[in-house]
Write a protein that binds this DNA or RNA. Sequence first.
DNA 1: GTAGGAATTGGAAGCGCTTCCAAAACTGTG
DNA 2: CACAGTTTTGGAAGCGCTTCCAATTCCTAC
Lengths: 339, 339
Amino acid sequence: MTDKLTLDEIAKRAGVSRTTASRVLNDGPNVRPEVRERVQRVIAETGYRPHPVAQSLASQQSHVIGLVLPRRTEALFNDPYFPRLTQGIAQACNDHDYTLALFLMQTEADEEKFYPRISRKGLLDGIVIQVGQIGDGLIARLLTSDVPTVVAGRPLNHPNASYVDVDNVAGACAGVTHLLQLGHNRIGMLTGDMRTTAALDRYTGYCEALQAHDLPVDETLVSEGYFTEIGGYEAMQRLLPHKPDAIFSASDAMALGALRAIYEAGLTVPHDIALVSFDDLPPATIARPQLTTVHQPVDAFGVKAVEMLLDVMKNGPTPPRRIIMDTKLVIRQSCGAVS
Amino acid sequence: MTDKLTLDEIAKRAGVSRTTASRVLNDGPNVRPEVRERVQRVIAETGYRPHPVAQSLASQQSHVIGLVLPRRTEALFNDPYFPRLTQGIAQACNDHDYTLALFLMQTEADEEKFYPRISRKGLLDGIVIQVGQIGDGLIARLLTSDVPTVVAGRPLNHPNASYVDVDNVAGACAGVTHLLQLGHNRIGMLTGDMRTTAALDRYTGYCEALQAHDLPVDETLVSEGYFTEIGGYEAMQRLLPHKPDAIFSASDAMALGALRAIYEAGLTVPHDIALVSFDDLPPATIARPQLTTVHQPVDAFGVKAVEMLLDVMKNGPTPPRRIIMDTKLVIRQSCGAVS
DNA sequence: GTAGGAATTGGAAGCGCTTCCAAAACTGTG
DNA sequence: CACAGTTTTGGAAGCGCTTCCAATTCCTAC
């Protein structure tokens, strides 16, 4: 009785051709209202749902977008940034009726295994790839593949890449300038992983702010560490002997670690050391004192990335698109400007 | 010249039929070694990669697994638990050559939009769904759909569901028993969201431990809150007036909030209040003092869920599978047992 | 040298849908 | 009422692969 429910079956029951049934299914034009309604009723009655894979094959688009997170495991899911980014992208996909496929490339073997699958037209209509470490070849490969790709974060040496990024330079500059204006002049920096453009750019912003105030960059006050609590903790420990009077941290998570190191040294924030960081994610308001931090719009970032991808998918990769999103300094307690 | 690279084209170039080419592609049997090699060489030379969607349609399996996280946004990506779970599941998918599709159902509209797509055989070969709040209808719908489904966490009122969970009752019981053995007798609990089985089960474990020591459960010492830092903070504030001498927290994140509330009240951990929590995720070692906590194997949990799903996909949903994973109490500073 | 069985091969029928294109059915105009 | 133009319809050709099954080839044993 209940034959396998295919579009053919629907067409038969509604007394139309499969072509017409397909038109109704996809809200296509050129169907008499009366016929359309009849087909719709049959669809509703039978609970018919089209086979997504068959649709994909015939229409040559899968309605699936891939999010590729390259290997850089240290911070990947410790830093609240990535979950948040993922969430933003997932939401944007939902809103645009795309399904999100997640590729966590944890090892090189993973990359080799999945590259053939995802770089080929078919499975994915488009790819959002998060920038990883500088020199990571995956971006280059994906950018030259058949699949439309946009990059989340600024990729190095890919002039034709479309990407969205936040203005890390200006954001960091604003954060450091704030500390300068509060009268600090031994401002240290916790940079994050310098193999990433985010760290590089924030460091550039730090330098620019100092130079704008005619201060030299003292390399002994600059300390690198992963973008994690532990990374910040260790980097801060290395910095303490050089007696900074303020710290700019490249992320909230690192700032948490820095706070810990500072307290363990018997110092307090903001009294002995003022602190400004970057992100404005949950750790910023959980910390005590609450963090003065450069807010970056992570959710909107994900949304923009997806929208840019949709644009590239529709209109081709040229010209390369660029979106640099603004940041905003959020003043709380850790800088000492307010109590 | 370069015709579209299909299996037909490969077959032609290798001088075999498409059938044979397909056999080589899928490492099927019954191909003469010499022929196999010839086809493989053509594949390698041309860089041919099969069209995944066409394979899916023909073979009736997509090699895609869906991870569904139902709406419960408060904690979803603040609690480090979910990112970690996602990571474990993603890794397991990679290892088994499955692609992971992520469904974050943030609104009811999202559910309605995606339910038809995912509940229909085709897009997904199987689903791992994280339990949400009790009474959430999504699990029920998915369990009766065409798609093999396993649940991460214990679902309520679904006797036929296959699921994997950690032994929340025993874990909580062990944590509380530890506090009892240290001589505490006004042990409070921060339960987490009582609309989840995890919170209920941990609460049950708490009660069991008390009862085993002939202590009554004092409801004024039990405080509910979301599974987040803020949730723990607020729940702890409500508890402080009742002067507990120890706290069992249903999650590390909540314990962080509890610590904050305790310090703000001018008390110290473990001196004034001993603290044991649940999870053993990064917050546990970041906190000061470090948290004594009930370790749950989140990564392995994801792996088990995927493996169970693969089993259900292969051998059918009956009988329902159950895996309850062991926890282990990790003793650090917050309980006062060691310094 | 030949029968019987196993290993190898390819033809052809799908998988369930979209879409091109030509045919059929209307519309209005002179 | 015929005709050109517009809508509406359905036939049929794919999309790129898997897989059933029958045909062919290859062995081995007698």
